[in-house]
Structure formats: C-alpha cells, structure tokens
C-alpha cells in the first residue's frame, strides 16, 4: 500500500525541469520589466498633483469670492438712503407696483414717501395693505 509519509523520505529528484538558463534569463527579464514600470508610477504621482493643484485653485477662488462679497456688503451697509434720496419725479411715470417695489427695497415706513403716495391719490388702505403699516 502506498503511503505518502514513507514516500516523502524517498524523494530525491525534482520532477520539474526548466529551459536552460531559465532563472538567469528570468532575472534579467524581470529587471527589464520593472525598469519600464516607473513611467506608470510617475503618472500615478502626476494625478495627485493635478488633484492637489485643482483643490488649491478652488480654495483660492472661494476665499477671494467670499472676501469680495463681504466688501460689497460692507459698501452697501455704508450707504444711508433717506427719503430725500428718492427721486420723486422719477415716480411720475411709475405704476403703484413699481413704486411699492422700490419703497420696499429702500424704506417702507418712510412717512415722506407715504405722503407722496397720498398726494398721488393712492388710498391709505392700499398703502397700509401693501406696506404693513
């Protein structure tokens, strides 16, 4: 009866042959192959560089956009409009809707503006309704 453990002790010859100088040639082949690989590796390094540059540019643009918006808001805040700044003549050709739009933006509780609207025969009810007086 065949027994593997007994056979193990008898193994003396390797049954697997190789072509002549296989291992020497293979070593050279492997070295040649890996020398052609760094190009792929450098490409791998290149992609992260693009990502990092892109991210840096995005942060730069975002930072200056925020800074610019803040400056514009500060400039707008510094403008103090009064009723005297409203060009009454300009209203002459405007409809009630257009006026209300402008007043809402500027100062809807300004009495002089309301006086103007009353002078223009716009009823107090309508003014009250539109400007939450």
């Amino acid at each position: 009866m065949f027994n593997l453990e007994n056979h193990k002790k008898k193994i003396s010859k390797n049954p697997f042959a190789t072509p002549e100088n296989y291992f020497e040639d293979n070593e050279k082949k492997a070295l040649q192959k890996i020398k052609s690989l760094p190009k792929e590796n450098s490409r791998k390094i290149f992609y992260p560089l693009i990502y990092i540059s892109g991210a840096a540019a995005a942060v730069f643009i975002l930072f200056f956009s925020i800074q610019n918006t803040t400056e514009i808001n500060q400039n707008l805040n510094s403008i103090n409009l009064t009723s005297s700044d409203i060009p009454y003549d300009y209203f002459d050709d405007l409809t009630i809707d257009e006026v209300s739009e402008n007043i809402t933006v500027l100062d809807s509780s300004n009495y002089e503006t309301i006086d103007y609207l009353l002078d223009e025969d716009i009823s107090l009810e309508l003014i009250a309704e539109n400007y939450s007086l």
């Binding site: 293979n26 492997a30 070295l31």
Partner: peptide, 22 residues
C-alpha cells in the same frame, strides 16, 4: 529599490517558481 528587487529575485525566484509549479 532596484538592487533590493534584484537581490530578492535572485534569493527567492527558484523557491517561488517551484511552489507555483507544484
């Protein structure tokens, strides 16, 4: 790195080959 690889190949390639072959 290349020297390391070359040394690794010369040390281990036969053992790896025969294990793969088995």
């Amino acid at each position: 790195d290349e020297k390391a690889f070359q040394f690794l190949v010369s040390t281990y390639q036969k053992k790896l080959y025969y294990q793969i072959r088995r």
